[in-house]
């Protein structure tokens, strides 16, 4: 303000100061914006999309939707989720993965939504529960599946499909029996049939590879690396064959549903 004169500067300055004083004087009487937490807990509305903590919703029968596939664990950028599973044999003699403990480290979570977006079952979601402070770091490790809970059998998928479900999912959605919508069931059956066919092809390819590896390993019994490769290929082939069988069965079930 070098180009203004002494007195003009003085008067202009005083005027600007008075304007400022006017603003603060007016604000003295405006309503205050302080949030009176925790008294306002009841009326304090947290938007439903707010990500406070990861939860696994359970229904009234203490059942959750998690099948223990571990995709969320793979997606998590910093190892917040540990899915502990075991293999159990179902009544009809099939081997099936079952969730034992779903451990969530709240202290580590970045709330990036990769897990919830990837979950093919819609088993986990974020809740706007925001009072997450605890006294010990250990308390931040939470087991999300309730004690004694189990995976819901033949779960009916909620009608509102998750937006862009399984964008980053590593596998196509696992078979889900549909509601009594004939068209949908038919489409499903077709899809299942295609999936079963694909699985069978994969299994066949894996079997072929395993056979090759076996031949190579037998020819070169001394080479441990080849032995290892054979074992691996064998295991893979077995796994894929089981999967193909499952798919075939499910496809048959789906076809039966159509009828």
């Amino acid at each position: 303000m070098a180009n203004t004169s002494y007195f003009a500067g003085l008067i202009g300055g005083i005027k600007s100061l008075c304007t400022g004083l006017g603003v603060t004087f007016r604000e003295l009487w405006t309503p205050k914006i302080t949030e009176r937490y925790p008294e306002n807990r009841k009326e304090n509305h947290i938007p439903e999309r707010f990500r406070g903590t990861l939860v696994m919703p359970h229904n009234e029968n203490n059942e959750h939707k998690c099948i223990g596939c571990g995709i969320c664990q793979m997606q998590c950028p910093n190892g917040t989720i540990k899915v502990e599973t075991k293999m159990v044999e179902t009544a009809d003699g099939k081997k099936k993965k079952q969730l034992v403990r779903y451990v969530y480290d709240h202290g580590c979570c970045m709330y990036c939504m990769l897990c919830t977006r990837a979950c093919p079952q819609g088993a986990i979601e974020f809740s706007p529960e925001y009072e997450g402070a605890v006294f010990a770091r250990e308390s931040l490790f939470k087991v999300l599946n309730q004690p004694g809970s189990k995976c819901v059998e033949k779960p009916a998928r909620p009608a509102a499909a998750k937006p862009a479900a399984a964008t980053e999912g590593a596998k196509p959605a696992v078979a889900q029996p549909q509601t009594a919508d004939a068209d949908a069931a038919k489409a499903k059956a077709e899809k299942m049939a295609a999936a079963a066919k694909k699985a069978a092809e994969n299994a066949a390819a894996a079997r072929a590879a395993a056979n090759e590896a076996k031949a190579a390993a037998e020819a070169n019994a001394a080479d441990t690396a080849l032995q290892e490769a054979w074992k691996e290929a064998e295991a893979k082939a077995l796994k894929l064959e089981t999967a193909a069988k499952n798919f075939a069965q499910k496809a048959a079930e789906a076809a039966a549903d159509v009828k």
Binding site: T24, E27, L28, T30, P31, K32, I33, T34, R36
Partner: peptide, 11 residues
């Protein structure tokens, strides 16, 4: 200062 700043101050 709290009242000028739209706050409640110590309470």
């Amino acid at each position: 200062c709290a009242f000028v700043q739209c706050r409640l101050g110590p309470d």
